[in-house]
Simulated assay, not measured.
Amino acid sequence: EHIEEAGVHSGDATMVLPCQTISPEVMERVIEITNQVALALQIKGCMNLQLAVKDDEVFMLEANPRASRTVPFISKAIGIPLAKLATKVMLGETLKDLGHVGVAKFDHVAVKASVFPFLKLVGVDSILGPEMKSTGEVMGIDKNYGAAMYKAMISAGNKLPLQGGVYVTVSDADKADILPLVKELHEMGFTIYATKGTSTHLRNNGVPVITVYKVAENVSPDALGLMRRGEINLIINTPTYSSGSRRDGYMMRRLAVELEIPFLTTVHGAKATVCAIRRARQGDLKVRDIASYH
């Protein structure tokens, strides 16, 4: 399951296995569609199927009769060498003969996080979209989703804070969804900073917040100044489409890259990150060799 919504390139998306937010009914439909497509296309070997879910309805984006970059990640996560099995099937053996029938069973969580080259590519905006920007990936694995997510995030170079300041500036469409996450960050002891529109919404809903001004307003405090002084340790910024906000957002994201401050540009990414921070603050994160999970 991709953490980000459809529209972010699959090579850039954060992925989790098994799915965390999809209902059992929808998963049954996903498996049903997968079987129907594979059989109808008479595929022997690997098939890459991309599906999107909206309001519990499943849409098929594309099907490719080949492996994908996700195969090594899934193979490591479930302990089954999928490429080797697919090759044997293509050469005439059956899954039944190979002892692999049905859906793989496992009791841990694996998260794939992408590694981005933004620090080296001066001027490139870090907003994710349909064009792939990542140059590598890492995997976090644990019995607990939050722990697996935290391991993946820090392995990808995101210095997730366990305390400090969080700067929040989101579009109007995201204000309702971001509220419970910001409340949770406040309860964990983080200082919340936000732009005028976002801070008004948060304050009206009982979250103590410090208002931060846009650069063009020439009023202190502004986000870039706070970032340079080390008072902001995490940024939640979902893009808005007015020219001023877009310019400020770009400047802030570039500075965040240069100062190595983790930034989140989707509500779903923020939700996963808050879950990871909550688990990390509990301590006792275990490091185990991957073979011990299988």
Rank of each mutant, 00 (worst) to 15 (best):
M90F: 13
D97P: 00
G92Q: 10
T94D: 04
L82N: 07
L95P: 08
G92A: 11
I74H: 09
L82G: 10
D97G: 05
I80W: 02
S75A: 13
G99D: 06
M90P: 05
A83M: 10
F73M: 12
L95S: 10
K96E: 11
G102Y: 00
T94A: 03
G79W: 03
A83D: 13
G92D: 11
L98A: 04
A83G: 10
V103N: 06
K96Y: 01
L98F: 01
A77W: 04
A83C: 11
K76M: 06
L82C: 10
K88E: 15
T87F: 14
V103F: 00
T94F: 01
T87S: 14
K96N: 07
I78S: 05
F73P: 11
V101D: 02
L95V: 10
I80R: 08
V89Q: 05
G79R: 05
I80A: 02
I78D: 06
L91E: 13
G79P: 02
V101T: 08
A77H: 08
L91G: 14
A83N: 12
L85F: 14
V89P: 05
T87Q: 14
A83K: 12
K88S: 14
T87M: 15
K76L: 05
K96Q: 08
L85R: 12
I74M: 14
G99S: 05
L91T: 12
M90E: 12
K96S: 08
K88N: 15
V103E: 02
V89N: 07
V89F: 08
G102W: 00
T87E: 11
K88G: 10
V89L: 15
L85S: 13
I80K: 10
L85I: 15
L95W: 07
A83H: 07
I74F: 11
G79C: 03
I80D: 03
V103R: 09
L91F: 13
K76Y: 06
A77N: 07
V101L: 00
A83T: 14
L91N: 14
K88R: 15
L91A: 15
V103A: 06
V89S: 07
L85Y: 15
L85H: 13
G79F: 03
K76N: 09
L82K: 05
K76G: 04
F73Y: 14
K76C: 05
L95Y: 03
M90L: 15
A86S: 15
F73Q: 13
M90R: 13
V89T: 09
P81I: 02
K84C: 07
A86G: 11
H100I: 07
M90V: 13
L95T: 12
L82D: 11
G92W: 02
D97K: 02
V89H: 05
M90D: 12
A83S: 15
G79T: 02
V101M: 04
K96H: 06
L95H: 06
H100L: 06
E93L: 00
H100G: 03
G102P: 03
E93F: 01
A86I: 14
P81C: 03
I74T: 11
I80F: 00
